[in-house]
Design a protein around this nucleic acid. Structure first.
Lengths: 170, 170
DNA sequence: TATTGTTATACTCTATAACTATA
DNA sequence: TATAGTTATAGAGTATAACAATA
């Protein structure tokens, strides 16, 4: 349909040709395709870096089947037992609707429990279970390993500088 | 259902209470909720920063209805006219299946055209239309404005250092 | 056989709105 | 009225698989 209409376009040669030149084998996204204005955009670099970090995190913690958001939720609850769902959602910038499902899965794995709040019957006080605490200790060791991968990738000094630059966003 | 089973949990007071203390007005995610191990994780800081950047980009370019990925596609095509879809997808780390839809929308707005390749009848040579070139010039001015927002947010020097640290990811 | 563009499906994530039970 | 947790839905975005046309 769309295809058909596209192919109606005349096939005259355009004069312009692709500027792709392959590098040697093993290069990553290694085509000599210019990016021009894209280089110099913080957003593009940060986006690519963030994808790399998340992929490495997921891979490094694949054995325990924990993703970055699940890790952050458990970490915040461990550091602030009794927090409500709203408080966790606000602190991590997660939609409260989404946190419901995240907690459902963490509760199903017996890592987190929702205790009815003593003071407000609408809200839940979130706690790690005993099993959750043990598990989180293991997750933290793996997360530290992931963090070492980051340091290897961009350099120890650069990683520390980056954390200082972005401290305001945590 | 799940709710019901949750509410069966005994309502005994837990002793633990939320540790939330409000700051003065104007603070951003301004609760004194400890993050502990989360601070010190590059991935967390980078993720939050990336979300801030994308939100600002989308907001700054809202008048022209262009999102970061659309901008990056048009920029790469402008810098390398005649590129195939596979080449663009690989260069930007986008799935080729997704690029199809991105190009459909850019083509529908007459910003991009798919010219049948002169040498390989399977592939399309991608070009900006005249309208696309004019539009991209405007997008670039707005993107530069967005980039100034980034510099204001983290500091001019820090932004430049960040770009140097992450240069390998572009 | 392998690759390009395409279609389709599933799953994650974001953004909303609406509902309930409480406050 | 407003808030906490929940449910539901729609739109991006990611990850796959499969197909037709072509190499």
């Amino acid at each position: 349909m769309l295809m058909a209409s596209r192919q109606k376009i005349s096939r005259k040669a355009t004069g312009t040709t692709a500027t792709i030149r392959r590098r040697g084998p093993g290069s990553d996204a290694g085509d000599d395709i210019g990016l021009d204005a894209l280089v110099g955009h913080a957003g593009y670099a940060v986006r690519r870096f963030q994808l790399w970090i998340f992929h490495d995190f997921i891979k490094t913690l694949a054995a325990v089947d924990i993703r970055p958001t699940q890790y952050s939720v458990m970490t915040v609850i461990a550091a602030n037992p009794g927090l409500s769902q709203m408080a966790v959602a606000k602190r991590l910038g997660i939609e409260r609707a989404r946190l419901v499902h995240l907690l459902d899965s963490l509760e199903a794995r017996d890592f987190v429990s929702r205790i009815p709040s003593a003071t407000d019957r609408r809200s839940h006080a979130l706690h790690l279970t005993g099993r959750g605490k043990t598990a989180l200790a293991r997750f933290k060791r793996l997360a530290a390993e992931h963090e070492r991968h980051v340091a290897e990738k961009i350099g120890k000094e650069n990683r520390e500088h980056l954390l200082r630059i972005l401290a305001g966003f945590t």
